[in-house]
């Protein structure tokens, strides 16, 4: 059952028992509100909350170490480029200018810019614990069922399940094809010129994609032979009935979202401005 790619780790915490639909809703709801809000206090509180929940999911560091490193490097690069392109963007947003370093040149350092970039960094990472909780505690088989439960058509839900099912197969096929083409003499390593590599990659894509087209036909026949698409509805072996704990979790999420919305009114916009006196 362990789908390596998705990182699902079967355990028995209350988060694992929570329905996939609940977790997906919570993830989407909290993502939207933390994306919309630029109230630092709110984002920090939500992040603390998700970190507490994260701890309860009993996720081990090695499961997430790589992802955390990637997101940190990615965020850092983005923050630097933002600074290079617009070192005074914070001043523009908050309307004040508290200079720390530099005076005349293009690159100045202001408290406003630092505060803006802190907010940006928070935004990049605030949803990461939520996403990881979702990925690591949700059984991929239940995922499709929960999409369907959220009102997405069962055909599309099943298409996503098929993607998860066939990713390892496609990956194995790709590995085989790539090696076979290299053996025939395509150079794909960094030594080759860009145009040569582009050509080589295309030659790998051809067999991969054309054999996939045949595969699509046989798989759809196999599914029709077992009546996929016959009815308007479909049931799911891995379906999860919503229980009290699901409703409770959703209630908490709704409250958090409402607080976020209330803060828009209170702040008079998306931004919380500590520089305004």
């Amino acid at each position: 059952m362990n789908n390596q790619l998705f990182g699902y780790d079967p355990q028995d915490t209350w988060l694992h028992r929570l329905g996939g639909a609940t977790k997906l809703l919570a993830f989407i709801g909290l993502s939207i509100i933390t994306m919309a809000s630029y109230d630092t206090r709110f984002i920090v509180v939500v992040m603390m909350l998700t970190l507490v929940v994260f701890k309860q999911a009993k996720i081990k560091w090695q499961q997430i170490s790589l992802v955390v490193k990637v997101i940190l490097i990615f965020s850092l690069l983005n923050l630097i480029t933002v600074y290079i392109f617009a070192p005074e963007y914070g001043v523009h947003i908050y309307g004040t200018r508290h200079l720390i370093l530099g005076n005349h040149g293009y690159f100045t350092l202001t408290q406003e810019q630092l505060f803006y970039e802190l907010n940006l960094a928070l935004k990049y990472i605030v949803t990461v614990p939520l996403a990881l909780i979702f990925l690591i505690t949700t059984n991929p088989s239940e995922f499709a069922a929960s999409l369907n439960r959220l009102g997405i058509s069962y055909r599309i839900s099943y298409a996503i399940a098929l993607a998860l099912r066939y990713i390892p197969d496609v990956q194995a096929t790709y590995g085989q094809i790539s090696l076979a083409q290299q053996a025939r003499g395509y150079e794909l390593s960094k030594k080759a010129k860009l145009s040569v590599r582009l050509k080589g990659v295309t030659q790998i894509l051809m067999p991969l994609i054309f054999s996939s087209l045949e595969r699509i036909d046989t798989i759809s026949q196999a599914m029709e032979l077992r009546r996929f698409g016959r009815n308007k509805k479909r049931t799911w072996y891995m379906d999860h009935k919503l229980s009290q704990i699901d409703y409770l979790a959703l209630l908490v999420v709704i409250i958090v979202i409402l607080i976020g919305i209330a803060l828009f009114r209170f702040n008079g916009g998306r931004f919380f401005n500590p520089f305004k006196v």
């Binding site: 599309i156 298409a159 098929l162 699509i216 759809s220 029709e224 996929f228």
Partner: peptide, 12 residues
Amino acid sequence: VRTVVAIGIGTA
């Protein structure tokens, strides 16, 4: 059904 499978394999 063919489109459903195409979406699945295509996504993969």
